[in-house]
Design a protein around this nucleic acid. Structure first.
Lengths: 343, 343
DNA sequence: GACGCAGCCTATATCGTTATAGATTTTTCA
DNA sequence: TGAAAAATCTATAACGATATAGGCTGCGTC
């Protein structure tokens, strides 16, 4: 087969030199005019801008980057290995969408469980391959964040930490989610509540657990928190674990789970054990997409808007990079309603 | 003789200049040594490589890009607006994963329905912001592909076209999917087959329809193809359309759909109409993730491996960029088995 | 011993941009 | 009127890499 080859670089893409020739000015003048420098005359600026417009001038990113160090790149560092249908794709998409009208490109850097989580971050900082980084799945004490902060490298995170550091973040209020869920379950008369939490390494797992235990204590309820399994495990592992739990004594009648996959697996397990949702038990699930209602309309759903997170993080990070004070540097998205079909 | 030097101001990352000072060679020599040029002595090369290794030298991407035009970027142009849980995130992820061990970064460029599909492609080619592009959702006659081919710009596509052009692609054999599905439905005694196809603008919709009609004709069956609705529509719109169809005369008893969302919506609609899957009708669905079996185990699933597509496209494209002949430039992934629980 | 010829290395220009210092013109004002 | 002060603009040198042309050895050959 014939291979597609790189085109000979005889492209007529205009540079500052082209504009200089066109306007009869020096390259430096053209550069400064486009930057709206104070020591360039108004009509010169107009003339230059007009020529730039007419020729479709776009600054060469490599030139800018080499000279100034500015990459015009935002890097998104993701651990997407376990992701099936939750946050990841929405986050990528919403960040890229928010960057569409800016000069920034989005670079996606996945990292893998066989790898030091520091590696991508270190690479980005050391090689100065990005102007800023977005991280997700923050840990209570996160070495990646510690590193970037110590290097003064701009970043924003999806999720908070317990570290005493001020940086842009967007977090879903998982404690509020738990409280909301517990109250919804209580309203349906559920008494034996059960939480399937995210992996404890992630900070938001602690928030979810805290909200769960607090609210249950307030209502004087006994609770149980799954151990040895988390909501990021594979569906079949969750199914197995939940089946075992349902068959054991004092099976729970009110479930709280943090992901779509976990919800599906839990319902499967329950039904295999002869339990009916809405009858024998109820389930509250958090999901980033709107899916579970189509699976079992009886599921009580709390929606997490990841699109909003991406847009927020993109804005906050670019603001931080450019030294603009972001309107709101940090945001806690507190859910207030559950979505469920009335019975 | 040579003194062991302390790395000068270790905050600065090493450049060719650093290596030149370190080895006592000229910058050009260092550059050529690292490129393994034939006119550099063996022990000089060794000395340079050792110094590069020791100081952790990594070429500055901006410098390379400015001088050579090589960006070391692969751009993925995506229309992800309708995507909820199908290909997109897997594609991003698998391409990024395959590029991990290379010098390439993955840049994600989404595009929107309010936008000319040519815009991102034109931007990339004109500004030379990438060494190659991956496209998905190919059309039978795709102007984006025509454009890139005419400019000699390297690209690879997820999906084929009907154009007489040789370029790297990975495609799922949707005609084979249809044939497989039709046979599975016939085996279950279904007689009134119904296809909910993808949008006709996408080339693979035609393959799916062709396989469907061919196999049905071979078996002497009557068929029906949904019109006015496609499998990329929102779940609620699909649900509505299918509900209407189920209530009308001669309701189908064998369904073939091309996406997870469509399958869920179709089952919902059927059940709302009092029809039971496995009893009153059967459903064959194609999905990129393994989800539907947890929804309704009765669904007959054909799995499409998007991870494989991403890995393939990444390899084929980098090979094309670098002028290496790819082992296999084009690949048609033909499904051979359905996944269903035995009844 | 001069010539040619590998073999190995270096000097220089260049990609497109911007920071800096300096050059030129115009204006201001004593 | 002339000198200082603005107001504009330009020349130059980088940023880090590589392509190109050329320079310096030392060796073999006649």
């Amino acid at each position: 087969m014939t291979l597609v080859k790189i085109a000979p670089t005889d492209s007529q893409r205009p540079t500052l030199k082209t504009l200089a020739q066109e306007t009869g000015l020096a390259i430096a003048t053209v550069s400064r005019a486009l930057k709206n420098a104070p020591d360039i005359g108004e009509d010169t600026k107009r003339r230059v801008r007009e020529a730039a417009e007419r020729l479709g001038y776009r600054p060469n990113r490599a030139g800018v980057r080499l000279r100034t160090g500015k990459t015009n790149v935002i890097a998104l560092v993701l651990s997407t290995e376990t992701d099936v249908m939750n946050h990841t794709s929405r986050l990528i998409y919403s960040i890229a969408a928010a960057l569409r009208s800016t000069a920034y490109h989005l670079v996606v850097m996945p990292f893998f469980s066989d790898q030091d989580p520091m590696e991508p971050v270190r690479y980005l900082v050391e090689t100065e391959s990005a102007d800023g980084v977005v991280l997700n799945q923050t840990q209570p004490d996160d070495p990646r964040i510690r590193y970037m902060a110590s290097r003064g490298f701009p970043f924003a995170t999806h999720g908070r930490t317990d570290m005493a550091l001020q940086h842009p973040y967007f977090d879903f209020d998982n404690a509020a989610f738990s409280r909301l869920g517990v109250r919804a379950l209580i309203k349906r008369g559920r008494k034996r509540l059960f939480l399937l939490p995210p992996p404890m390494a992630h900070n938001y797992a602690r928030h979810m657990i805290a909200g769960f235990t607090e609210e249950a204590a307030l209502q004087g309820l006994q609770i149980e928190i799954a151990s040895g399994i988390d909501s990021d495990a594979t569906a079949s592992r969750i199914e197995e674990a939940m089946r075992a739990r349902f068959c054991a004594p004092h099976a729970p009648d009110g479930l709280l789970v943090g992901s779509t996959t976990a919800a599906m697996a839990a319902v499967s397990a329950a039904e295999q054990s002869g339990l009916r949702i809405g009858g024998d038990f109820d389930l509250v699930a958090k999901e980033a997409i709107r899916f579970l209602h189509r699976f079992r309309p009886e599921i009580i759903v709390v929606h997490e808007d990841v699109n909003r997170a991406g847009a927020f993080l993109a804005h906050a990070l670019t603001a931080a990079i450019e030294g603009r004070a972001p309107e709101h540097g940090q945001f806690l998205d507190t859910p207030t309603t559950t979505e469920s079909n009335p019975d």
